[in-house]
Computed example of a mutant assay.
Amino acid sequence: MPRVVPENVQKKQARDAKLLKELKEKRDKERKDRADKRKQVAANAEKYYNEYETQNKEVVKKAREAKASGNFFVPAESKIAFAIRTRGINKLDPKCKKIMQLLRLRQLHNGVFVRLNKATVNMLRRVEPYITYGYPSQATISKLIYKRGYGKVNGSRIPLTDNAIVENTLGQKHGITSVEDLIHEISTVGPHFKEANNFLWPFKLNSPRKGFAEKRHPYHNGGVWGNREIQINELVKRML
């Protein structure tokens, strides 16, 4: 006689088969979605790279044309600065302390991106003796985020090891779905710069190789503090 399978076992087998099928379909869909996202991220990265290269070539072309015609070429003013705290809390007056908190420069060798406008320039100048700042290149911004980038996720400091961390926090509202999108938003000072910059935890940098010389004097007098302009890129390289 054929073996009789109890009805409750049959129902369990049918339920298990249905759940297994749904799980397989879900995994296949997730796998396909991940592949599509990887293609989109790669396409965006290539688009951004071409955009950066075009901008660099345009600057070089204009500089050469100006030199050939005997004129001077002045590049457009930077829209973004990178500020690094160079001194501690000693002799810090309350107003400077408040500005440091607003800039999120709470610890020595902390670094942050700052969008340049009249208000932020005045803030930077007010606390100049305690910071150094300048205009970072796209390559410097990329290195900072890839090497020392941490995101603020539910109040926690999370390393940016996966595009999903960026997408889950900034993707739905602001369309920033990968680390490359984040770098592009920061370097171009895009419409969602504020949200992207607030998502980035202040960078914790090392003491620079070869150290700081003459911390009490401004940079243009051979010291440390103040505006370094494009020379900030060299300092960041020594502090990574």
Rank of each mutant, 00 (worst) to 15 (best):
V112Y: 04
P191Q: 03
H192Y: 14
M123A: 13
A63Y: 02
V74F: 14
L144W: 03
M123Y: 10
S69Q: 08
F73M: 03
G149T: 06
I131M: 11
P159G: 05
V179Q: 01
V224E: 07
I232Y: 01
K152P: 00
E180R: 11
N221C: 09
E30Q: 13
Y52C: 08
F203Y: 08
P159S: 06
K18F: 07
V112H: 03
K21Q: 15
R38C: 09
A45P: 03
D181Q: 10
L160I: 00
M100R: 00
D36C: 06
F82H: 08
F113W: 04
Q13L: 15
N198A: 13
E128H: 12
V74R: 10
A119V: 15
T120E: 04
K57D: 08
K61A: 13
E7H: 10
S178W: 09
L200W: 03
V189L: 06
R3V: 10
Q107S: 11
A43F: 12
D181V: 02
G70F: 03
A63V: 01
Y146K: 15
K173S: 14
I131N: 06
D28E: 15
E65W: 00
K21W: 03
A76T: 05
A213Q: 13
L19Y: 05
V224R: 02
T169C: 09
S207W: 01
L20I: 03
K204T: 14
R106P: 00
E229T: 11
T54P: 00
F203V: 07
P75C: 07
H220R: 11
D181L: 07
E195P: 03
E214Q: 12
K215S: 09
L144F: 02
R115W: 04
K12L: 12
A14E: 15
K79G: 11
E58S: 13
K26S: 14
L102F: 06
W225A: 09
V9W: 10
T86M: 07
K97V: 02
P94T: 04
P191E: 06
D16P: 00
E229N: 11
G70N: 06
E77D: 07
S207P: 06
A35I: 09
N197V: 10
L23V: 04
Y48C: 02
P191H: 02
P2M: 04
F203I: 12
G111L: 04
V114T: 06
F199V: 08
E234V: 07
N90I: 12
L20N: 12
I99G: 00
E185V: 05
T120V: 07
G134E: 00
R3H: 09
A196L: 07
K98C: 04
R87C: 02
L124C: 06
H174L: 02
E30N: 05
R228D: 08
G70K: 08
G190H: 06
F113S: 09
V74A: 02
V9G: 01
V9I: 15
E229M: 14
S69R: 09
